[in-house]
Design a binder for these strands. Structure first.
Lengths: 121, 121
DNA sequence: TCAATAACTTACTAAAAAGTAGGGCTGATT
DNA sequence: AATCAGCCCTACTTTTTAGTAAGTTATTGA
């Protein structure tokens, strides 16, 4: 058992999962990995089905865990842009692997995502 | 929206997460990635905290999704060994990345897992 | 013969994660 | 003046996931 920041992990895999686990984290992260900088609304519009609550909650946790960071573009009105931090970028191979594995899997089932992604909007 | 096997995915990342999401799947998979072949009891003893219910449930789902496979060593008494299938092995870079990222993260926080793992049992 | 181990299953409960539906502030658009 | 968009927050409910505590069949070992 590994203890870190008052949490207990069984192994290094468990440690990493603590950061990227859950339904939305990897979707948000890999989205930011592709698009570099994105506003709150842009992220929301690219993650079909996410609620405002989930989005702001997950963004907050990702910031707390320093996988993402944000620039405050203006205060009144409040406008921001989110982006991957250094730590967040250090997971890039992961986002890319997971995405391309998904694409390969789809291809095995007759779906050519890269060619037809305009159809899946 | 991508439709596959009566489920809907928003993108390829989502597809992959359908296979490896949840608290235990990656732990089981990366365990089998390290140890090649393992009995039910050996897996259980190496995943502290997992219940019999969770273990057999997750093993069943991983088999259904053909990420793992098993040899039936004997029927009476029933003895088996689990191992990664070809598909399961195709995710090896993922297991290894997640594990080494965890190790690096721990090191940043003063924990040398590789050297001290005997302490974390 | 009694206990222990392996490989599970099942019914039930609890906890965690996610979703719903609203509200709030600001400024631009109509 | 009223509506809308951006960027959230909060209380509450539902769903999903996970945990508990048993029980089953079979065999080996003391």
């Amino acid at each position: 058992m590994i203890q870190l920041n008052n949490k207990i992990y069984t192994c290094p895999v468990d440690v990493t999962l603590g950061f990227i686990g859950g339904k939305w984290k990897l979707l948000i992260l890999s989205h930011l990995n592709i698009f570099e900088k994105k506003s709150y609304a842009e992220i929301r519009n690219n993650l079909p089905g996410i609620s405002e609550k989930m989005l702001s909650q997950q963004l907050k946790e990702l910031e707390r865990d320093s996988l993402i960071d944000k620039n405050i573009l203006s205060l009144k009105p409040y406008r921001v842009e989110y982006f991957l931090s250094g730590d967040g970028k250090s997971l890039s191979p992961l986002y890319e692997f997971i995405s391309s594995w998904g694409i390969k899997h789809l291809k095995k089932h007759g779906i050519d995502y890269l060619q037809d992604q305009h159809l899946y909007k």
